[in-house]
């Protein structure tokens, strides 16, 4: 037999509970607001830095001579007429397309291989993370040694041993950009492969089994089931890698510094060199604003693609 509390006591208990709930909610709200502070501060700080950087591009600020006054959009007008800027832009796009294209293709193969129930696959997956843990500039310096000229270089030593002509790699204008792509692929291929592998592993096995029962071969399974299913994962990988490749700096500055000639002088290297060793902070800043614009456009296009793919 249930013992019911008299209505007054019940009401009191309910009121007490409500007060406690309200107090808890108030505390939660306060804690939530406190925790939101960094999320509010960081965009504000970023905006301050960005607008200060943009403001610098409207002035003629030289590191070695100080602020020489307001020049308005002169630095941007100069950009449009600067052959070296357009050369850097074209190199940046060439690097990004080659780099991201190779990474996605190879990462697809790698993800498919890693999704197989092979012996020792877990160890291999763990080893795969090593390049990811390597700071890009360290990776670049290691590769610089591997690419060394003469038979003191790692790759050239094997070419020499095999009686093949030794190569210039990053020291040869026709090979330099592709040699740098190879470094970047080494650094980030595992990252892309892990994203794609995650996609493959969320695909229901029943669909693949059903396709096999219906007589589909491996290629048909990949092309008609796995690939469409993985598109959102490709977009995520693309988003990170396109933005990162457009911004490529450390790998290149750590190895070629933009050379030979200006064969690897991508936008970020051009901007840095203009701003610091050549002291023109304002014009270097304008190059970086152009790079930011490029990244924003690329990021927005990918974002639109994400939205559309979600809608379909």
């Amino acid at each position: 037999m249930a013992i019911l509390a008299p209505p007054v006591r019940r009401q009191r208990a309910m009121n007490k509970g409500k007060v406690e709930r309200d107090a808890l909610e108030t505390a939660d709200i306060r804690a939530g607001r406190l925790m939101m502070i960094p999320a509010l501060i960081i965009p504000v700080l970023l905006a301050i830095v960005f607008f200060f950087g943009f403001y610098l591009t409207l002035r003629n600020r030289r590191l070695n001579r100080g602020d020489l006054g307001f020049v308005g959009l002169e630095n941007y007008a100069r950009l449009l007429q600067d052959d070296k800027f357009w050369h850097s832009l074209s190199l940046t796009l060439k690097f990004t397309l080659t780099d991201v294209g190779l990474e996605l293709s190879l990462a697809t193969l790698m993800a498919l291989a890693l999704s197989q129930p092979l012996r020792g696959i877990r160890i291999y997956r763990a080893l795969l993370i090593i390049p990811l843990m390597t700071p890009p500039v360290v990776g670049a310096l290691v590769w610089k040694v591997l690419y060394r000229s003469g038979n003191g270089g790692f790759f050239n030593y094997f070419l020499w041993e095999a009686g093949l002509p030794m190569q210039g790699f990053i020291g040869d204008p026709s090979q330099a950009i592709f040699s740098l792509v190879a470094i970047d692929v080494w650094l980030y291929l595992p990252f892309v492969a892990i994203i794609l592998l995650a996609g493959l592993q969320t695909l229901p096995q029943e669909q693949i089994d059903a396709a096999h029962v219906d007589g589909a071969n491996g290629w048909q399974v990949f092309w008609q089931i796995q690939l469409p299913y993985m598109i959102p994962f490709y977009i995520v990988a693309l988003f990170f890698r396109v933005i990162d490749s457009l911004n490529i700096f450390d790998t290149i500055y750590g190895t070629t510094k933009g050379g030979p000639g200006d064969a690897t002088r991508v936008l970020a290297v051009n901007g840095f060199e203009t701003a610091f060793p050549f002291f023109n902070l304002s014009y270097g800043g304008a190059i970086f604003v152009a790079l930011w614009l490029l990244c924003t456009v690329a990021g927005s296009l990918l974002f639109i693609w994400v939205k559309r793919s979600q809608a379909t």
Partner: peptide, 20 residues
């Protein structure tokens, strides 16, 4: 050297000292 555009002062020094 094949990749001359990448040769630093210390690479030159080492390579000469190792007899190449």
């Amino acid at each position: 050297p094949e990749g001359w555009a990448n040769v630093t002062w210390y690479e030159g020094q080492e390579s000469f000292a190792n007899g190449s």
